[in-house]
């Protein structure tokens, strides 16, 4: 054993000012980066509003939200959002019918009825589905689904709310499945075993105990899927035909809010009225998705607290 002599006469406990300063600089930078998300989110809201102000002043928010037709380049110009909102809603409704049952059903099977290796494999499948760009889904819809819808329902055009909605439903599945599965997974095993010990079958355990316990997480998953469907742009732009008419059935062509912005922004005069109106559409879209996401976040946070012990 080497005994190093320790004469500590020279050592003191003062502050190294340079090190302190470096630490303070880093801390400031890190804090600034931390607050960036608030800044960007606020900036999005503010700039949408600023750019939409011309439209709000000249057309009026009331008119835009209640007028039933959209003729942005006609004479007279009519900027009614109702056909666009109705378009978005009809497409989203179709998507909802697809992703709610299939998404929740899949999440239940993956979480409750399948082995570990299958769960891992499904993670990759879902990862893949989430990674495929929306324009590719749109293109596949154009190539495959449009002709199918046209032939099956005997229509003159296969570009309908149904076509867009079906594809949107598939695109929203990864979100719904992964969040619902997380929620089911978070339910403690003790609850399952307690139920099984009472003589319940696995399915009875699932619908009496597990799903109710995970309901808020599943709800959040559905909300986030809904948010994704409403905000999706490329697939609906390519698949719905973009007729700005309030639809009476899902077999009609519709024009969504997102599709309208994407299709028309290329043709407007920057700073003009039409440009400003498109920002107003964006503002409405932002408001809707913000509300949906906020609701989902709050529900998710409550659930996280519930299982945290």
């Amino acid at each position: 054993m080497t005994v190093t002599p320790t004469t500590k006469a020279g050592r003191h406990l003062g502050r190294a000012t340079r090190r302190r300063a470096a630490e303070a600089v880093v801390r400031t930078l890190v804090y600034a980066a931390g607050l960036l998300s608030i800044v960007i989110l606020a900036a999005i809201a503010i700039f949408l509003f600023v750019e939409a102000r011309k439209a709000i002043n000249e057309v009026g928010l009331g008119t835009m939200l209640t007028a039933t037709s959209w003729f942005p380049t006609g004479t007279p110009k009519i900027f009614g959002f109702l056909p666009l909102i109705a378009g978005s809603l009809s497409v989203t409704a179709v998507a909802l019918v697809v992703f709610v049952p299939i998404g929740i059903g899949s999440a239940i099977f993956i979480s409750e009825f399948s082995a570990g290796w299958f769960k891992e494999a499904m993670k990759s499948v879902i990862e893949f589905m989430a990674a495929v760009p929306s324009v590719v889904y749109g293109f596949l819809g154009v190539a495959v689904l449009i002709p199918w819808v046209k032939a099956t329902f005997n229509l003159t055009s296969g570009m309908t709310a149904l076509t867009g909605g079906l594809v949107l439903g598939i695109m929203s599945l990864p979100t719904v499945i992964s969040i619902s599965e997380d929620a089911l997974h978070a339910v403690p095993d003790a609850l399952r075993q307690g139920s099984l010990a009472l003589g319940n079958t696995r399915w009875q355990t699932v619908y009496k105990v597990v799903v109710p316990s995970a309901s808020s997480g599943i709800f959040a998953g559905v909300m986030l899927g809904l948010g994704r469907a409403i905000g999706e742009t490329m697939a609906v732009l390519m698949l719905t035909g973009n007729a700005a008419i309030i639809p009476t059935s899902v077999l009609e062509s519709v024009r969504t809010m997102t599709g309208t912005i994407a299709a028309e922004m290329g043709e407007v005069v920057f700073g003009g009225l039409h440009y400003s109106v498109l920002f107003a559409v964006g503002l409405v879209l932002f408001g809707i998705t913000f509300a949906i996401n906020l609701a989902a976040d709050l529900v998710l946070e409550r659930q996280r607290k519930r299982w945290r012990r």
Partner: peptide, 15 residues
């Protein structure tokens, strides 16, 4: 904010 940013439609980011 971060969770909400993730939910903002991509076309809105475009705007």
């Amino acid at each position: 904010s971060i969770a909400n940013m993730a939910g903002v439609p991509s076309i809105v980011y475009g705007l």
